[in-house]
Simulated scan of single mutants.
Amino acid sequence: MSIAHSPIADKTDPAHTLLHRRYGTDQPFEPDAWNDSLETILSHRTVRTYLPKPVPDEIVRLAVSAAQSAPTSSNLQAWSVVAVRDPQRRAALADLAAPNPQILSAPLFLLWIADLSRLRKITVQHGNSGEGLDYLESFLLASVDAALAAQNALVAFESLGLGTCYIGGMRNHPAEVGKLLNLPPEAFAVFGMTVGYPDPGVETDIKPRLPQSAVLHHEQYGETSAKDALSGYDDTLRAFQKGQGMAVRGWSEVVAARVADKAALKGRDLLTGIARQMGFKIR
């Protein structure tokens, strides 16, 4: 039975319902505070099938405004985003990220860029070498900036009734992606995001996450109940997978396979060298 349709999930209190669905079980707390923002965030689910309906430009601009409202380290704003609507370009990107057919289904594909090129130009204009951009810290900073911006945009899109899906497969062939997008040196597509109106004929549910006992630590990192928490989560995710008609593998098995060896990284073990070829120093 799908977790979302269990009797406990039918309670009318949205906080109780969404927390139950987010974790697959009743939670040991009942929040007094609640608002529409929390409801949007906790309702997040991955959408991979979209209607052939374009995303209005004003919604894209509004989402980018939300993205630019995210925190950014030292106000460096070391990110950019490329909006791709052209079917042929989306098809080429889908080939590079395969298998990700949702790139073909979505009318809009956003590429979130860790972008040091703009900062390099500014430092040169001011007579500096910009040596600070040559270190891993700057590449990491730009990647974090891009992630924070993208998540704000995702919440904005979903609050307006659109669906989204992150695409990490852009890192499978980053140099080729860079050429397709005409990225300058020191600009790197960290991930993509499909955006569109969800196809109502293809329902997806809220995927349960790890229990808070596995991720929330107080004062210092502790592993007291991690084993039991992970075991229970495997059972929860198996129930979810069964209810969604997915392969029933739990979580631990999938994680172990995803990071088992170099081959499991699908070419991403070469990212440091490729990033250097794309202009990043990464000392």
Score class of each variant (00 low, 15 high):
M1Y: 04
P7K: 13
K11L: 10
K11P: 00
T12K: 14
T12F: 02
H20T: 11
H20A: 07
Y23V: 03
P31A: 03
W34F: 11
T40I: 15
L42F: 15
L42E: 04
H44L: 05
L51S: 07
E58R: 10
V60S: 05
L62P: 00
L62A: 14
A67Q: 08
A67K: 02
Q68P: 00
S69M: 09
S74I: 13
N75P: 06
L76K: 13
Q77S: 12
W79M: 03
W79K: 07
A83L: 07
A83E: 03
V84Y: 02
D86K: 07
P87I: 03
L96M: 11
A98Q: 11
P101A: 05
Q102A: 10
L104M: 08
A106T: 08
P107M: 07
F109E: 03
L110P: 03
I113L: 06
A114T: 04
L119W: 04
Q125F: 02
H126A: 12
G130P: 11
E131N: 12
L140C: 14
L140D: 06
L140I: 14
S143N: 12
S143Y: 03
D145L: 05
A146L: 03
A150Y: 01
L154C: 14
L154G: 02
S159N: 05
L160S: 04
G161R: 09
L162V: 10
T164S: 07
G169V: 02
M170R: 00
A175N: 05
K179H: 07
L181H: 09
P184L: 07
E186N: 08
M193I: 09
V195P: 00
P200W: 04
R209Q: 14
V215R: 08
E219C: 01
Q220H: 14
K227H: 09
D228F: 06
D228R: 12
A229C: 08
A229G: 10
L230R: 06
R238W: 09
G245I: 08
M246F: 15
W251I: 01
R258H: 13
D269T: 11
Q277M: 06
F280L: 08
